[in-house]
C-alpha cells in the first residue's frame, strides 16, 4: 500500500465508528446469507424470540456461532499480526510465518494420534499449547543464536513451520483413520464450532488484547532500532517477552477456536496502518476491527465461491493473503 503522505482529514474515532458499522453489516450478512438466505426478521426471531422452528434452530445453532467465532478469531489474529510485525520489524511476518500455526497443527495431530484425544475441546487446548510452544521455541532459538534480529526470527520461524508441517504430513499418512477429522480441522474453518469454544477462548483473547494495548507506547518506540528504543528507556527484554505472551494467547486462542486460519495476521496490519498510521494504540484497535470484518467477510464468501458446497475459510483468506503477499514482496515493502 502507498505510504500515507498526509494526516487523516477526519478524527480517528470516525474511522473506528465506520469500521464498527461495516462489522455489524458483515455479521448480519453472516447470519442471513448462505446455502439458504434468511431475512433479518427471521434472524431476530431466532435470536431474541426463539420459536423452535427449523429456521430458528439453524440460525441459532449453525449461523450464530459462525457470526461470533469468525470476528473474534479475526480480531485476535489481526492484533497478533500487528505485534508480530512490530516485534520482528518485518512487514511480511505474521503468526503463520513465525511457525505458530504449524506448532498448533503439530500439537493437534500429536494429541490425536499419540494421546488419543478426540474431543474438540481437547484438540483446541492442544492447539493453544502448540502455538505457545512454537513461540517460545522460535524466540528461544533466535535469542540464544545472537539476538532477536528480525531476519533471524523469521528464518527460524519459516524453518520451524516447514518442519512442523512435514511432521504433520507424515503422521497423517501413517494414520489414515483420523485423517478426515483432522484434515477438516487443519484447514481452518468457522463451521461447526460450538459457542462454548468461543466462551473458553474469549478470556485469553481479552487478556492478550489488553496486554497489547498496555504495551502500545513501548511498541511504538520498538519500531525504531534497538539502540534508539533502549536509550528512550524501553525495557527491551520485558516488552518483547510480554508481547510474545500476548501473541501466543491471541494466536493460541484463535487456533483453538477455528484451526489455523492463514494470512489474516499478515494482511490486516497493513490495512490498519494505512487507515490510522503507526501508533500502536490506534493500530491495535483498527486491526481488531478490520480483522473481525475480514474473517467474517471471508467466512461469508466461503459459502459462495463453490456454491452450493462450502470452501474452507482458510482457503479464501489464503488466496487473498497470498496475492497480497506477492504484491508486498514485489514492492519490496518488507
Amino acid at each position: 500500500m502507498k505510504p500515507r503522505t498526509a494526516a487523516l482529514a477526519w478524527p480517528v474515532s470516525a474511522t473506528y465508528a465506520g469500521l464498527a458499522v461495516v462489522l455489524v453489516v458483515v455479521m448480519a450478512m453472516s447470519l442471513t446469507l448462505g446455502y439458504r438466505i434468511y431475512s433479518l426478521d427471521q434472524v431476530y426471531r431466532a435470536l431474541f424470540a426463539f420459536d423452535g422452528t427449523d429456521t430458528s434452530v439453524i440460525i441459532a445453532n449453525l449461523r450464530l456461532p459462525r457470526a461470533v467465532v469468525a470476528p473474534m478469531v479475526g480480531a485476535a489474529l489481526g492484533i497478533a499480526g500487528v505485534l508480530v510485525q512490530t516485534l520482528s520489524r518485518n512487514r511480511i511476518a505474521s503468526p503463520d510465518t513465525l511457525g505458530l500455526n504449524a506448532g498448533a497443527s503439530l500439537f493437534v495431530v500429536m494429541a490425536s494420534s499419540v494421546l488419543g484425544v478426540s474431543s474438540l475441546m481437547g484438540l483446541s487446548f492442544a492447539a493453544a499449547l502448540g502455538a505457545l510452544g512454537a513461540a517460545l521455541l522460535v524466540f528461544g532459538i533466535a535469542a540464544t543464536a545472537g539476538g532477536l534480529s528480525p531476519l533471524r526470527i523469521v528464518l527460524i520461524g519459516v524453518t520451524f513451520a516447514g518442519l512442523g508441517h512435514s511432521v504433520v504430513e507424515v503422521v497423517l499418512t501413517t494414520n489414515e483413520a483420523q485423517m478426515q477429522q483432522l484434515l477438516f480441522w487443519l484447514s481452518g474453518a468457522f463451521v461447526d464450532r460450538p459457542l462454548a469454544l468461543a466462551a473458553n477462548g474469549a478470556p485469553f483473547m481479552i487478556v492478550g488484547g489488553l496486554v497489547a494495548l498496555v504495551l502500545s507506547r513501548a511498541l511504538d518506540a520498538l519500531q525504531a532500532d534497538d539502540s534508539t528504543a533502549a536509550s528512550l528507556g524501553v525495557p527491551l527484554f520485558i516488552v518483547r517477552g510480554a508481547a510474545f505472551l500476548s501473541v501466543s494467547l491471541l494466536t493460541g486462542a484463535s487456533v483453538a477456536m477455528a484451526g489455523p486460519v492463514g494470512f489474516v495476521g499478515l494482511v490486516v496490519p497493513h490495512a490498519a496502518r494505512w487507515l490510522v498510521g503507526l501508533r500502536h494504540s490506534r493500530q491495535i484497535v483498527a486491526a481488531a476491527l478490520i480483522g473481525a470484518i475480514y474473517a467474517t467477510a471471508a467466512d461469508v464468501a466461503a459459502r459462495f465461491v463453490i456454491y452450493p458446497i462450502e470452501a474452507p475459510v482458510g482457503a479464501v483468506t489464503a488466496v487473498v493473503g497470498g496475492a497480497m503477499l506477492l504484491i508486498l514482496l514485489k514492492r519490496r515493502a518488507a
Binding site: 525504531a224 532500532d225 539502540s227 496502518r273 501508533r279
Partner: peptide
C-alpha cells in the same frame, strides 16, 4: 541522558511527527 545512535532506523512509512513523538516515551 539522550542518545542518537549511529545509523538509527525506523519504518519508512512512519511520519516525521510520529517519529519525533517517540522522544516523549520516558
Amino acid at each position: 541522558i539522550g542518545l542518537l545512535a549511529q545509523n538509527p532506523s525506523a519504518p519508512g512509512d512512519m511520519s516525521v511527527e510520529e517519529l519525533v513523538r517517540l522522544g516523549r516515551y520516558p
